[in-house]
Nucleic acid binder design. Structure first.
Lengths: 132, 132
DNA sequence: CCGTATCCGAAATGATACTG
DNA sequence: CAGTATCATTTCGGATACGG
C-alpha cells in the first residue's frame, strides 16, 4: 500500500474539517476572540437577553467604545447578533443573539468555565516555570 | 433598598469570575488562541498522544516554526504541555499534554465543532450583510 | 533536528475628538 | 445615546539566518 515510510502527519482535513484551513482558522479566531466572547456572554446574561450599546459598554470591564462597536458589527455580520434601531430621541439601539449565536454559547461557556476553574493552577505552573 | 434607579449592569464578577478581570482575559486569550488550539488538538490526535516538534510543524497547516516554538513554550509554561528532551543525535524532543491540558480538550473541541458545523451559515450571513 | 535571534511589515487596540 | 474618524502605540507573525 503505497510507499509510506512511517512519517507521522495529520491530514489537513483532520484539524481543519470540511473546508479551507485558512477560512476555518479565520472563523475560529473570531469566535474565540476575547471581546466576542464577553460580548456574547453579556448579551446572554443581561435581563431580557438583550441590551443597549451603553449597557454592554458598562458590563464588559475595560472594553473601549471602539472595540465594542467593532465587535458588535462583526458579530452582526457573521449572523450571531441582531441589531435593532429605534427611531427615538435620544437614539436607542438594542442587540440580541440570533439562534445561531445562542448555539455558540455552550462552547464559549465551556472555555470560560475552564479558565475560571484552572487559573489558579496555571498561575502556579507559571511561577514554577519562571523559577528556572 | 438603596437608590438604584434601574441601571442595568453586570457585576464584573459575573463575567470575570473569581479574580482580576485582566488576568482572566489574559488566560482566556491564550487558551482561545488559534495556534494553541491547533497545537493541543494535534497533540491529542497524533498516535501515542505525543509528537516531535517537526511532526507538529507538519501537522498544523501553515504554522511557522517560530509560532510553533512560541506556542509550545507558552503551553509548557502554563502547565498544559510537557516537553521531554532525549539526549540523542540528531536531537529529539517530544511533547505531550498534561492532565490539565487534557482537561481543556473538550472545551476546545466544542469550539472547533461549532465552527465546523456553522461555517457555511456564517458565510451566507456575511454575504447577505455585505450586500448592503 | 530543534530551536533562537533579528528584522520588519501588518494588524490589533486604546485614547481622543467629533457627529447625527 | 450611539457611534465614527483619526492618530499613536503595541503586538503579532512571517521570513530569514544562524547555532547547539
Amino acid at each position: 500500500m503505497g510507499k509510506s515510510a512511517g512519517k507521522t502527519q495529520l491530514e489537513p482535513g483532520l484539524l481543519c474539517r470540511n473546508e479551507d484551513p485558512v477560512a476555518f482558522r479565520e472563523l475560529l479566531t473570531k469566535v474565540g476572540d476575547k471581546w466576542s466572547i464577553f460580548t456574547m456572554l453579556a448579551l446572554s446574561m443581561l435581563p431580557g437577553e438583550r441590551a443597549r450599546f451603553s449597557e454592554l459598554n458598562r458590563s464588559i470591564p475595560t472594553i473601549s467604545q471602539r472595540m465594542l462597536a467593532l465587535t458588535l458589527r462583526n458579530l452582526e455580520r457573521d449572523g450571531l447578533v441582531i441589531r435593532e434601531v429605534f427611531a427615538e430621541v435620544p437614539p436607542r439601539v438594542e442587540y440580541e443573539l440570533t439562534p445561531m449565536g445562542q448555539s455558540l454559547l455552550p462552547a464559549l461557556q465551556g472555555l470560560v468555565d475552564w479558565v475560571a476553574g484552572n487559573s489558579a493552577d496555571v498561575k502556579l505552573a507559571r511561577a514554577a516555570f519562571d523559577t528556572r
